[in-house]
Simulated scan of single mutants.
Amino acid sequence: MTLPLVPPMLATPGRLPPAAQDERWAYETKQDGQRVMVYLPGDGNVLLRARSGEDITAAYPELRPLGGALGTTPAVLDGEVLALDERGRADFQLLQSRMGLAHAPARAARRAARVPVHLVLFDVPFLGESLMRQPYVRRRGRLEELGLAGPHWSTPGAMTGHGAEALAATREHGLEGLVCKRLDSVYEPGVRSRAWIKIRNMRAEDVIIGGWLPGKGRLTGLPGAVLVGQRAGGRLRYVGGVGTGWSEAERTELAELLRAAVSSRCPFDPVPRIPDARWVLPRLVGEVSYSTRTRAGMLRQPSWLRLRPDLTPEESAADLPEGSGSGG
C-alpha cells in the first residue's frame, strides 16, 4: 500500500513538568543522533527519510533487514539513528562519518563495516492505519507489542512519572538529556509541540578568550563570536567559538574589553585556521555552557554564561587533558 508521508513531531525546549503533573508524562532518554522516519510498506522493503524529508536509505545499509521485521503489516515508525562508542553511548561525531552518504552506496557500505549504526524506535504514527489521533500512551503500547529488537535496532523503554529521577540518571550517566511526553498527546506531524518537551544536559566550564570574530548585520562593530581556549600541557588550546548567550549590553561591554586587549599574535597553540579572526591577549576569563566535547576536545553547542572578572587566566579551573584540543 502507499504509506502516508509523516514529518516527525518535534519537541519544544523546556523544563520538567510540575511535580503535581508528573504522572501525566512519560520520560525517554534524549538521543544524540539523526532523526528518521521509517517506512515499512509490508513487502520486505524499507525507506528511511531524514527530518528534511530526504531519502537517506542508502546511507544505512545495515538497516535494510528491518524491512521484513513486521511481515506484511505496513507501518511508519519514528526513531533516531545512532553511532555508539566503545562504552555503548551515542557519539554524534562518529555518526557524522556515516551521514551524507545516501548518494554513495558503495562508500556507505564500507563505512558500515567500520562504524555500524543502531536505530532506536520511540513512536508508531501508522500501523495498518493511522494512529496519529491516538494518545501517546496507546501508540507506545502498540510499538512495544511489535517486539522490534534486532542486531541494529531496538525499542528502549519509557518511564511514566519519576521525571526528576530520570533526568538525574541521564546526567549521572553522561547522556544528552531527557524528552518528556504527555501521555495523552496525539502525534502532530511536523509540529514543534509543547506536548513533548526536551531537556538537554549542559555542562559549564571556565574558558580563556583568545580572539573574536566580527559580527555582521545588526552586530556590525560588535563581536559575533569569541574564540576560546583552555590550558593543556602548558599551552592554551583552542576549544571553539561561542556566538550565543549574550544580551546586547553584555556584547557591547565585551567589545570594549576585547578592543583594549587587541594583539597581533594568536595566543592559541597550535594556531587554529579561522578566517577573519581577531586576536587578543589571553587575559579575559569567561564561563560557558556546552553539551558535550568532540574527540578532539572541542565544545559542542557552546553558549556564553558570564565573564569571570574574579579569575585570572592562571586561576581558571579550566584544564584539558594532554592530547586534547584542535588545530582547527
Rank of each mutant, 00 (worst) to 15 (best):
L227A: 11
A113W: 02
R251F: 07
E144Y: 10
P65A: 09
L47I: 11
R265L: 09
V228W: 07
A106F: 08
W196S: 04
G327T: 11
E256P: 01
G44L: 05
G88W: 09
R259G: 06
G327Y: 05
M298V: 13
P116M: 07
A261N: 10
G217L: 04
A318Y: 01
R87M: 10
H118C: 07
L320D: 08
V36E: 10
S97H: 14
G325K: 00
L84D: 03
D276W: 11
Y27T: 08
Q134D: 13
T160M: 12
D276C: 07
P302A: 10
M1I: 13
G53L: 05
R140W: 13
M9S: 11
W212E: 04
S185P: 01
V226W: 00
Q21W: 06
L254E: 03
L311Q: 15
W304S: 07
R171E: 13
A75L: 10
V288L: 12
L148W: 09
V271A: 14
T292S: 11
Y290W: 04
G14V: 01
L148C: 11
G33F: 08
L63Q: 09
G233D: 03
D55A: 06
L5Y: 13
L70A: 01
R306L: 00
R200G: 00
S97Q: 14
A106L: 13
A164V: 04
L281D: 14
E54V: 13
R265N: 02
P156H: 08
I197Q: 10
E188M: 10
A166H: 10
A108R: 04
M202R: 15
S154D: 14
L82V: 03
G224Q: 03
R49T: 06
T73D: 06
F126Y: 15
G33E: 00
R111P: 00
R133F: 07
E188R: 14
L257D: 07
D32E: 03
G325H: 04
G243S: 03
A249P: 00
L254Q: 00
F126W: 13
L101E: 04
S289H: 09
E23Y: 00
A317C: 09
V36D: 02
W279L: 11
A109P: 03
T252F: 10
W304I: 08
G53I: 05
R278A: 07
W153T: 11
Q134N: 08
R259D: 05
S316G: 11
V38A: 00
G174I: 05
E144S: 11
R139T: 05
L5M: 13
S326H: 14
A260V: 04
S263N: 04
L258F: 01
T155A: 14
P282M: 05
R259W: 03
L320K: 06
A90L: 02
I209D: 06
V115I: 15
W304F: 15
T170H: 04
T73Y: 02
V36I: 12
E86K: 13
F268G: 06
S316H: 09
V115E: 13
E62H: 01
H162D: 15
D184L: 06
V226D: 05
L307P: 01
R265H: 11
V207D: 11
D184R: 12
R235F: 08
